[in-house]
């Protein structure tokens, strides 16, 4: 199985983003997804900057994929989308049907991202006909549902699973980070930059529940399928995706890499990972349960 790094879902400082990708160039990861997928107001990196990062990572031997924004509302959103879908060099991850429309019309191969609702073999077959070479399973899909997809998967189609990170659960036109500061979205003062891993939302009895990330709502818990690599392999998963967090991402990639290559056991990797995670783990979706639940017990939790 190959290892992928998803797009940064948060809003980081420009220099922090560049140095992050300098580290990633040297990290043991095969595929890197790049670009702003959440909010069009975020601009520390412009499209040209993303192209530049893409060139650097490609030169370092990474397969680079440019990810499109999930919620496309305005004409300027569409303009950015067209620059990405027409870049002529890198593969594009489509995160809405507008992107699929453009890529399929141009007959360019693409990745059907996690925000394309691919829930059944018929839709996967359609995406295949339209030019998709890889699809990323919706985060709420279970292993069992995936195994039905895999049974009739079109030849040559790769399957990718979101396997580590706070889960991107919902999109809105509203910005909940701005709402927290009583700011209008158009004058949000980019407060989301103060929360490089999202702003945790607790229940009234203090249970971390969700995380606000601008217009995106995420899980507070960190989805972690490090303990499920064998079952992913058995289900025919081709690519395992790690979603960036503000610190320790190269170490997390290395633990996945080592577990994938058999240099360490999943248990040992899971144990080491607990020290790198800023919130508790969850893995319910993979087991067909509420996403918030956790089945796999990392040994460190018993210490």
């Amino acid at each position: 199985m190959k290892l992928a790094l998803g797009p940064i879902l948060y809003y980081w400082e420009r220099e922090a983003t560049f140095s992050f990708y300098d580290e990633i160039a040297a990290a043991p990861v095969d595929i890197v997804y790049l670009g702003e997928t959440v909010c069009s107001r975020r601009h520390t990196l412009r499209t040209e900057d993303w192209f530049e990062v893409a060139d650097k990572l490609a030169a370092a031997g990474k397969e680079v994929v440019l990810s499109t924004q999930a919620l496309i509302e305005s004409e300027s959103d569409l303009k950015t989308l067209r620059r990405l879908t027409g870049n002529g060099k890198f593969m594009v991850e489509a995160n809405d049907m507008g992107a699929v429309h453009q890529l399929s019309a141009a007959k360019v191969p693409f990745v059907a991202g996690p925000h394309i609702n691919t829930y059944n073999p018929q839709t996967l077959e359609l995406l295949n006909e339209l030019g998709a070479k890889r699809w990323v399973m919706p985060v709420e899909m279970s292993r069992e549902a995936l195994s039905h997809m895999q049974a009739t998967r079109p030849a040559g189609m790769e399957t990718e699973v979101f396997a580590y990170g706070r889960l991107p659960l919902a999109f809105s036109a509203r910005c909940f980070t701005a709402r927290h500061y009583n700011l209008p979205k158009d004058d949000c003062q980019f407060r989301c930059m103060d929360y490089p891993n999202g702003l945790t939302l607790n229940t009234r009895e203090g249970q971390p529940f969700l995380a606000l990330n601008g217009i995106q709502t995420m899980s507070a818990s960190i989805y972690n399928l490090i303990g499920e690599l064998d079952s992913m392999r058995a289900t025919g998963v081709d690519v395992v995706r790690v979603s960036p967090q503000a610190f320790h991402t190269p170490k997390i990639l290395k633990l996945f890499r080592d577990a994938l290559d058999g240099r360490t056991t999943a248990q040992a990797a899971a144990q080491q990972m607990t020290k790198l995670m800023f919130d508790q783990a969850c893995d319910g979706y993979w087991h067909g349960k509420p996403g918030i639940e956790q089945s796999y017990l990392a040994p460190a939790e018993n210490e």
Binding site: L71, Y119, E140, G291
Partner: peptide, 21 residues
């Protein structure tokens, strides 16, 4: 619905069942 319809898995995150599924 404050979320984009078809793009909200909050319900399945808590309960296992969502509008999409």
């Amino acid at each position: 619905c404050v979320m984009v319809e078809g793009r909200c898995a909050l319900s399945s995150y808590a309960t296992g069942e969502s509008p999409n599924t």
